[in-house]
Design a protein around this nucleic acid. Structure first.
Lengths: 215, 215
DNA sequence: GAGTGTGAATGTATTCACAGCA
DNA sequence: TGCTGTGAATACATTCACACTC
């Protein structure tokens, strides 16, 4: 927005600030200090992060909760509804479908795809399941920009390819296979095993590195 | 390990390198260039990342796949089995239980906890479900260091607290509620809604930022 | 010649220190 | 006085350039 260099992963922090602000339905005002405490950041960092996108506070007073919530939402692109396609309606897919966290934030899984003939044609909740070959027309018609992949590893790349030719803009990949996408498509990998590997690294390296001498 | 300053999130990249090396069961040798291509990094970065932990390659030749795989595994603490406790055996919890990705990497979900009387006492696959009040003795006896939380938001903090008094060292939190943990406990949040918010940010900001002039 | 390993240089993110406003 | 907002200083991560070894 402003002409500043915006740090690469400010988005994840904004998302955290927002989570705090959403809880504060009661309070009128808050401060960078309180935001910081809650999110585990420093107060300067909170102010700096916000400053990349505008001047949302009042000097001496703090931030007005409601308007800050609005402003951050706008920066994150959450002042609208997002329609989502789910590819792979297995256990994980179904778990995501039933998650209320999405709907509350304006993310609507609107259609599902699966090759299982048992599932195709049926509906789960109020979404319909189609065979993947129907992706392009359906995704185009419904103005869907985001896709979630929860298929077995072997099917990951082809699922991504189908989403891409359907005109999707971003993919959230839950499979542990890696995917290649053209640079104009945003890809985010959420690999559960990787998460545990990282945790493992932190645990064992705390053992190697002496707790007092630091690194 | 060595006296170098190790970058904060080298672990996630190591985890990616490893994924590539695991696929290469056939090949004997590889190079930083090929690792880079596959993982979307630069070859220098690959070499630098590896150099923080030792000298694993041969000048002029490259890396021996098997030994590099071993070395990275050791750095990540994957040359052992990790026992895991699962708190919350709902849809997501069950999806994780049935995921083969964990077992293959030495992560074993060994026990589950849930307050639902329907589930307590029964087993799913070959793990048993207990009431949460049993956490401390069970986790201690079974040498469990990692906990995964997949409970509703309201129950998140108390689940974490129980894990912590049971002596857990690290927590992977799938709930969208934020948790406070003492500094000696590693916490990793995997919040699905956050992931989508970040994607949303990338999509809308690509619109603001001109595609050619860059940022 | 091919490819690793690494100090030095550059680029990016964070923190400091303080000016400015309610 | 209290708290935001921000240029300047510092710390950190990445990339460059090249010495080194097979």
């Amino acid at each position: 927005m402003a002409g500043k260099k915006v740090p690469e992963n400010v988005a994840i922090r904004l998302s955290f600030y927002l989570r705090y602000l959403r809880k504060m339905r009661k309070e009128e005002r808050t401060s960078s200090k309180r935001l910081a405490q809650f999110t585990g950041e420093s107060d300067v960092r909170v102010r700096k992060d916000l400053s990349y996108f505008g001047q949302f506070g009042i000097r001496g007073k703090g931030y007005e909760v409601g308007s800050l919530r609005e402003n951050i939402s706008k920066v994150l692109g959450l002042n609208r509804e997002w329609a989502i396609a789910l590819v792979g309606v297995g256990k994980l897919g179904k778990a995501l479908l039933s998650s209320s966290a999405f709907k509350k934030r304006g993310f609507h899984i609107q259609v599902g795809f699966d090759i299982d003939p048992e599932k195709v044609g049926k509906g789960i909740g109020n979404i319909k399941i189609y065979h993947p070959y129907k992706m392009p027309p359906i995704i185009r018609e419904q103005n869907i920009y985001m896709g979630i992949i929860t298929v077995p590893n072997e099917a990951t790349q082809e699922s991504a390819d189908l989403l891409i030719i359907s005109g999707i803009k971003a993919i959230l990949n839950f499979s542990s296979a890696s995917v290649v996408v053209p640079s104009y498509v945003k890809l985010k990998n959420v690999n559960f095993a990787s998460q545990l590997e990282i945790i493992s690294y932190y645990i064992v390296n705390d053992r190697y590195f002496h707790p007092l001498t630091g690194d």
